[in-house]
């Protein structure tokens, strides 16, 4: 499963690569990184079909995570396939308004910083399993 992590903090990359080193090594999860909303959109345009999940910070200079979410939902409306990427929001400001706003904009999940990596890993693996099943189903169907 391909995941795009969007955060203006550069060290997020090293952290994710280490936290999910086994999953990366095992080929279950593949990570790409973008440092701003704009960069994320660029990446999305190039890898639209491969991307399954976007994990985005909300507070970023320039385009915020919520704006990014809005743009994605605008550009990639609901199914039919290719299925739009799920977007999970990550924020240090875990207030109800932001959560509400994010969910309204179509976020599939809302996580608070500091990230609970164990919980995140579980969610990701679960999604990856679903994704694999769907992929297999798709393949066997055709």
């Amino acid at each position: 499963m391909n995941i795009l992590v969007v955060d203006d903090e550069l060290d997020v990359r090293a952290l994710f690569e280490q936290r999910f080193r086994r999953e990366i090594r095992g080929g279950q999860l593949r990570f790409a990184f973008a440092h701003s909303g704009e960069e994320a959109l660029d990446y999305l345009h190039q890898h639209a079909s491969e991307l399954v999940l976007i994990l985005s910070d909300i507070n970023m200079p320039g385009m915020s995570g919520l704006e990014l979410l809005g743009r994605i939902r605008q550009e990639y409306p609901a199914p039919p396939p290719p299925a739009p990427p799920r977007v999970m929001m990550l924020t240090a400001y875990a207030d109800e308004t932001s959560r509400q706003q994010a969910l309204e904009l179509g976020a599939s999940d809302f996580l608070t910083k500091p990230v609970d990596f164990a919980a995140l890993k579980q969610k990701l693996l679960q999604l990856a399993a679903q994704d694999d099943n769907a992929y297999e189903n798709e393949n066997s169907g055709s």
Binding site: E9, D11, L15, Q18, R19, K113, P114, V115
Partner: peptide
């Protein structure tokens, strides 16, 4: 907020 970010990294990198 500015302190939170580096502190998160400190704990995360120590943990990992």
């Amino acid at each position: 907020h500015e302190i939170q970010n580096p502190l998160n990294f400190v704990t995360n990198f120590a943990d990992v």
